[in-house]
Design a protein around this nucleic acid. Structure first.
Lengths: 235, 235
DNA sequence: CGGGGCCTTGAACGTCGTCAAGCGATGTGG
DNA sequence: CCACATCGCTTGACGACGTTCAAGGCCCCG
């Protein structure tokens, strides 16, 4: 079922079996993408939404100054551009980080779902707002935390989210980013990100290498980053 | 009419006179707040949404490290916590910056509106997603722009939004923040914000003093900040 | 075997933060 | 009415966190 992972991570409000079936049937087709392939280009009018089934996806914006800012990292079960339904176009781009499989929901079908079910509407709306809450936590990270803590906090977030969908069973999990990507996500330079990663590793908290994160000491890491998962709204 | 300013700034999708009346009638009461008064405390269960009628409001988060990060600045016509309808509680706080008047919408009535009208649902949903788009632009600002440009960009944003609701007729407009607040919004220290403000003033672009912004040279400022209002979704 | 992507490290630099002091305006209680 | 506290703003000196520039290594792939 296409929507299993999504519904596993979004249990509020509860929906009926019929609503669940209606959501599932709104999928018209699936698609695949290769690493670095652009899924949504900024400012392009959109007519469908993309649910990530497999793989990793990033949302980012290129600045006129020539820098790149990653805005979000998506994992399976995330609607990567559900906000395109009310907005009709996005002000940022979306690209695949790995080989990716997605399910597509035409805006017209989403609208039909919102007409039929207030609970389903609330559920979908809520999922876009959890994304926004993550956006805000990133503002806090970039605006008010040191470089090392920013990276540690990001690892905590990804570990927590991946564990939730059963893709971080052990203390090692995939995070298919380069050090440049990590820097673009945290508002640092690649050079400095590299130094801070070494520090986190040498301090025995977390090790990042070739797209994989190994949690060396979860309690130490969590405490160091002052990670509080409330903003992820795991209700 | 309570919802006039909101509807003036949110014209997509178009709604009927009946839908407009239904929205208006969902207001159960109004309330007022004084400067620095907390309107919503983080993590408190909520049962209503707040539409800002008059005055300025901030959304912010205090970090465990003892810093404060402002996440958004709201002006009349903004729903400051419509996202509390699907989320039920917020992970940040909301406080008044000035004397403030608001209209209150119980969650139950919002739900009733979403049941009755898909267009109204889309309109409300959309407004929360424009807030999220602003959040993302702030990520770009804090993560990828220099201190002076961050401030310049914020002034551009506030000027553009205020002009839209007719509260920035001339080149001078109120922005009831202290320099500490500006620093908390842009991820800077008050000392450095002060220096950058002086620089912007001396370069003849924009002057900020005692809660008022004077645009000295709009084209120069806009160009300096590379301000592109697309993310505000003024359709 | 050459090239490119990614990572690593050093050295020098600069933006920005910290600490500290002082100013003017406002407000309040003795 | 003045003494004094508070708040917001301003400025200087100094230092640090993070950037820039540069070079080299490793590995994969054509």
């Amino acid at each position: 079922m296409y929507t299993d992972l999504f519904l596993k991570t979004h249990r509020v409000p509860t929906i009926t079996a019929e609503e669940r079936a209606a959501l599932e049937q709104a999928v018209v087709r699936t698609a695949t993408y290769s690493p670095k392939q652009i899924i949504v280009r900024q400012q392009t009018p959109l007519t469908q939404c993309t649910l990530l089934l497999e793989g990793f996806v990033e949302r980012y914006k290129d600045t006129p100054e020539g820098r790149r800012q990653i805005l979000a990292i998506h994992i399976p079960g995330d609607f990567v551009d559900l906000h395109s339904y009310p907005l009709k176009r996005l002000e940022h781009s979306v690209a695949a980080l790995t080989d990716v499989r997605v399910a597509l929901f035409p805006h017209a079908d989403v609208r039909a779902l919102t007409t039929e079910s207030a609970s389903l509407t609330e559920l979908l709306w809520r999922s876009t707002l959890i994304d926004a809450a993550i956006n805000r936590e990133w503002i806090v990270s970039i605006g008010a935390r040191s470089a090392a803590i920013r990276l540690a906090h990001l690892f905590c977030e990804m570990y927590t989210r991946l564990k939730r969908i059963g893709q971080a069973e052990t203390t090692t999990f995939p995070l298919p980013l380069t050090q440049v990507d990590l820097a673009d996500a945290t508002g640092l330079t690649a050079v400095h990100a590299n130094r801070m990663l070494r520090q986190l590793r040498e301090r025995g908290m977390v090790a990042f290498r070739q797209g994989e994160v190994e949690i060396l000491d979860w309690d130490a890491l969590r405490h160091f980053a002052k990670f509080d998962p409330a903003y992820l709204f795991f209700d």
